Amino acid sequence: MRTLVWMAATFALVTLSLEAQAKDLSKNSRFVCSWGSDIAADAQAAKLSGFTLYGARKKLQSQKFPRPWMRMTAMGITEQTYNSPSRLKPAGIKQTYYEQCIRHELARR
């Protein structure tokens, strides 16, 4: 029980720290991380519901994207999500993707 409380407290501190650091990033970097995490969560939801990778890619092909780079990036994120053995819920995938993206952006500085 003690370990569980300690882990929850540590997770909360790490999350708060990442959120504070994320605010130091540009608005565009935060947008890209948030957008990518949404794509990953949608792909995980589709994967868990039995939707095929082919079907997910077809859906992305018909979708309108505001920026030219988004379609291919969404395809890559979706493919990586489908290739992963992870069975996490979409919310977990979204959180993990966002945190790792923020870490990556901070490391690039």
Rank of each mutant, 00 (worst) to 15 (best):
M1R: 06
R2C: 00
R2V: 05
M7N: 07
A8P: 00
A8K: 06
A8G: 02
T10E: 09
F11N: 06
F11D: 06
L13R: 04
L13C: 07
V14T: 09
L18D: 04
L18T: 03
A20C: 02
Q21S: 05
A22H: 03
K23T: 08
L25E: 01
L25P: 04
K27W: 12
K27I: 08
K27M: 10
K27P: 07
N28Y: 13
N28T: 11
S29L: 08
S29I: 01
S29Q: 15
S29E: 15
R30V: 03
F31H: 13
F31K: 05
V32Q: 05
V32T: 11
V32F: 14
C33L: 03
S34Y: 13
G36V: 00
G36R: 00
G36Q: 08
G36A: 08
S37Q: 10
S37K: 01
S37R: 01
D38C: 09
D38S: 14
A40L: 02
D42E: 14
A43W: 00
Q44I: 03
A46M: 11
A46I: 01
K47D: 12
L48Y: 08
S49W: 03
G50D: 10
G50L: 09
T52Q: 06
T52S: 15
Y54W: 07
A56S: 15
A56D: 03
K58E: 08
S62L: 15
Q63M: 11
K64D: 15
K64I: 11
F65N: 09
F65Q: 05
F65R: 01
F65A: 10
P66A: 12
R67L: 13
R67N: 10
P68G: 08
P68S: 15
P68T: 04
W69K: 10
W69T: 09
W69Q: 09
M72C: 05
T73Y: 06
T73L: 12
T73G: 04
T73W: 13
T73D: 10
A74L: 06
A74R: 03
M75K: 14
M75R: 14
G76M: 13
T78D: 00
T78L: 05
T78N: 03
E79D: 12
T81P: 04
N83Q: 14
S86C: 07
S86M: 08
R87C: 04
L88G: 05
L88A: 13
L88D: 15
P90A: 02
P90K: 00
P90G: 09
A91N: 06
A91W: 14
I93H: 01
I93L: 05
K94P: 01
K94T: 02
K94V: 04
Q95D: 12
Q95M: 13
T96G: 13
E99M: 13
E99D: 14
Q100S: 11
C101K: 00
I102D: 00
R103Q: 11
H104E: 15
E105P: 00
E105H: 14
E105W: 08
E105F: 13
L106G: 02
A107E: 14
R108G: 04
R109E: 12
